[in-house]
Nucleic acid binder design. Structure first.
Length: 648
RNA sequence: GGGCUCGUAGCCUAGUCUGGAUUAAGGCGCCGGCCUUCGGAGCCGGAGAUCAGGGGUUCAAAUCCCCCCGAGCCCGCCA
């Protein structure tokens, strides 16, 4: 007999037994559901129910413990094979004890048979889900401040897929907007040269420098104008003082490029206007503008794709923002919105009254804001007729809902307001179902101590550099620890371990919490890290290789050591952990679980011999346990996009 | 000014949604042990926390409510 969720089966048995017993003891008292939780200590059983404290209130004059005693006595363990005993304890608990030998056999055999699918309990409500993630601007490389996005997005996609949903991973190419026009303009004045370095890095440099020079030009011109008061003038001067050192930094970093771009841009009287024209032309579908901006984005994307491939993050679809404009869907949505009564004109600008939508349709609570909080309005169309990011995102979102019934946007927490406005726009358009099924998976950004990253200012550490460094450090470790391995093997291992360490460091923490990036954090090879878990896997596999043969005659009732019991319980609980992690979008729970499991396994094999132990029935039971553990580690690391190496 | 998020040993985190058991769980770092025994990226042990602070609800609070302090972010015709 096998089970897709051994501990879940035990939980179900406890629940049924408890309901039955309670019904016998107190037929008149209706019970909703029994809370069953994992007790602090194994002496209190494998599951415990504290509900008698609550229930005692409903029955006058009875103490929780008395109630627990009465119910515990009525529990009929005979009809539930996994349930060995139920005992009242403490001030009013009923503790449930599992038949360990049965659970043990069920867990280990299920794991070995289900193998790469063990733990991945399928949902009964399979959906088609689009996970949109990363979507970094095609104007600069992905930097470490953004790197949490692909890691989290990929882990979410794995989780949902394993849960039985149909998942599509989408990258939204944000090619519309001023920033692409800036870099395209810089690229154009350079004469559209072939690039020598990694393309996204080169485009990123052109972007920062063009943006910086343009900003300084604008400020200089503004300062020359005499029609302003001294306060405004001072503000402009302050801004200029901010940009001057940035220019110096960029010049130092890219001397030749900086010199060339400055010379070329010197000839442009008003860079800002040229950029704005280019942006407008692009939106209008002007062929020359299309050719130029698409080219620059393609070049940059080539590098970004390379980075993501190195990180082993893949996409099913690359969606161009500009397509939504050119095919008329943005205009269509705007027309619809205008009919909705929630848009208004403010001078030349079209605004969306997000607050009134929320008020009228009673949505404030639903989107998580207080009743008296006034949601700022959203600008839909600029004075010059061009659209804004969130405007376009409305039609992108509806496009995604044509292909899926649930959409998860992996977007930084700082974009909470536009994501709320977007949702409200869907309600204003009467797309209630879509609004309800749109999830903003918000996470905090990665920061560097004492350093403010900014693509526009050219101040960032790229994801590429961090991957390289992490893998380089891993290689040094492999060279030192496993000199006997072939060069090829050493390289393969260091790739997997270096990348694993990086991913783990970014996925391990609750997404709501900020991560401060330090090398110490990523390059941790000891406890609570991917290398620690990977090492545990490699050791387990090594033991299995040493045994030469598959366990043939395991007798699971010989597994009686506390360390064995603890490990088996860990394996049995994996499916429940997985379900919670997938349904509540908590990839960090998997990281935490896997690390704990690795600790249990390390303790086990350090004190209990496996290969050489006698009798053979015990040896085989332990071998099967080792095999099962290796499977669960591999499966859970897979969810996080981390590879388990056979050796390291 | 308004809003969102976070605050747990020197440092990094789990637990908070759904309140439960006289020791608040891990990791890093620190101190002390373990290699003629399946790979020491390991194992075992130790020291280290009034769960930011104050009040409240409860038989029971890191967890729920109120107040307050501190940090980050948002409130743009940027994305």
């Amino acid at each position: 007999m096998i089970s897709s969720n051994p501990f879940g089966d035990f939980r179900a048995a406890c629940n049924a037994a408890l309901s039955e017993a309670f019904l016998k003891s107190f037929p008149d008292i209706p019970i909703e559901t029994f809370l069953l939780e994992i007790p602090s200590n194994l002496e209190f059983g494998e599951l415990t129910s504290p509900v008698f404290f609550e229930l005692a209130k409903k029955i006058p004059g009875i103490e929780p413990r008395k109630l627990a005693d009465k119910v515990a006595n009525e529990v009929n363990t005979g009809s539930f094979p996994l349930l060995k005993a139920a005992k009242a304890a403490g001030a009013g608990y009923v503790n449930f004890y599992v038949d360990f030998h049965k659970l043990c056999e069920l867990t280990i055999e299920s794991t070995r048979i289900l193998n790469k699918t063990y733990g991945f309990v399928k949902t009964e409500e399979a959906k088609t889900i689009i996970v949109e993630h990363t979507s970094s601007n095609p104007i600069s490389p992905i930097h470490i401040g953004q790197a949490r996005n692909p890691i989290l997005g990929d882990a979410l996609a794995h989780l949902l897929e394993a849960r039985g949903h149909k998942v599509f991973r989408h990258f939204y190419i944000d090619d519309v907007g001023r920033q692409t026009a800036v870099v395209a303009y810089g690229y154009k004045v350079l004469g559209q040269p072939a690039l020598k370095g990694k393309s996204d890095h080169d485009i990123g440099a052109i972007y920062s420098i063009t943006s910086c020079i343009s900003e300084i030009h604008r400020l200089k011109r503004a300062i020359k104008m005499e029609t302003m008061d001294s306060e405004t003038l001072q503000q402009l001067r302050n801004q200029q003082e901010e940009w001057d050192p940035i220019a110096a930094e960029l010049e130092k970093k890219h001397p030749r490029l900086f010199k060339k771009l400055s010379q070329k841009l010197e000839q442009t009287k008003d860079i800002e206007n040229m950029v704005n024209d280019l942006n407008r032309n692009y939106e209008e579908g002007n062929e020359e503008a299309k050719k130029l901006i698409r080219k620059v984005c393609q070049i940059s994307l080539q590098g970004i794709r390379q980075t993501l491939t190195n990180a082993e993050v893949y996409f099913d679809s690359w969606d161009w923002e500009s397509d939504l404009i050119w095919n008329g869907s943005v205009t269509g949505i705007l027309e619809e919105l205008k009919k909705s009564d929630y848009v208004f004109q403010r001078g030349p600008v079209l605004e969306f009254d997000a607050d009134r939508v929320a008020e009228d349709l009673l949505l404030k609570k639903k989107i998580g804001v207080k009743d008296d909080y006034e949601i700022p309005s959203l600008t839909l169309i600029r004075g010059d007729g061009t659209t804004l990011y969130t405007t376009r995102d409305i039609s992108y979102t509806l496009w995604k809902f044509k292909k899926a019934n649930k959409v998860i946007n992996v977007v930084g927490m700082e974009q909470l307001l536009p994501q709320q406005q977007l949702k409200l726009a869907l309600w204003a358009l009467k797309h209630n179902k879509q609004a309800d099924n749109l999830t903003h998976f918000a996470y905090s950004l990665v920061t560097l101590p004492g350093y403010k990253m900014s693509s526009r200012r050219g101040r960032y550490i790229t994801f590429d550099e961090v991957i390289d460094e992490s893998q380089k450090r891993a290689l040094e470790e492999v060279e030192q620890r496993s000199p006997h391995l072939s060069e090829k093997e050493k390289h393969q291992i260091s790739k997997v371990v270096g990348l694993g360490a990086l991913k783990y460091a970014l996925v391990e923490v609750d997404p709501a919490k900020p991560v401060v990036f330090t090398w110490e954090r990523v390059l941790n090879l000891k406890g609570n890290s991917a290398p620690y878990i990977q090492y545990t896997y490699a050791r387990a596999r090594s033991i299995l290789r040493k045994a030469h043969e598959k366990p043939k005659q395991p007798n699971y009732s010989l597994l009686d050591e506390p360390l064995e019991k603890d490990l088996v319980l860990g394996l049995a609980r994996f499916p429940e952990i997985f379900i919670d992690s997938a349904d509540n979008l908590k990839p960090n729970a998997i990281a935490d679980y896997t690390n704990t499991l690795a600790e249990k396994f390390n303790s086990f094999y350090n004190s209990e011999p496996v290969v050489k132990v006698k009798p053979i029935e015990l040896r085989d039971a332990r071998l099967a346990l080792v095999e099962a553990t290796s499977i669960v580690i591999q499966n859970s690391l897979w969810l996080l996009g981390i590879v388990s190496p056979e050796r390291m």
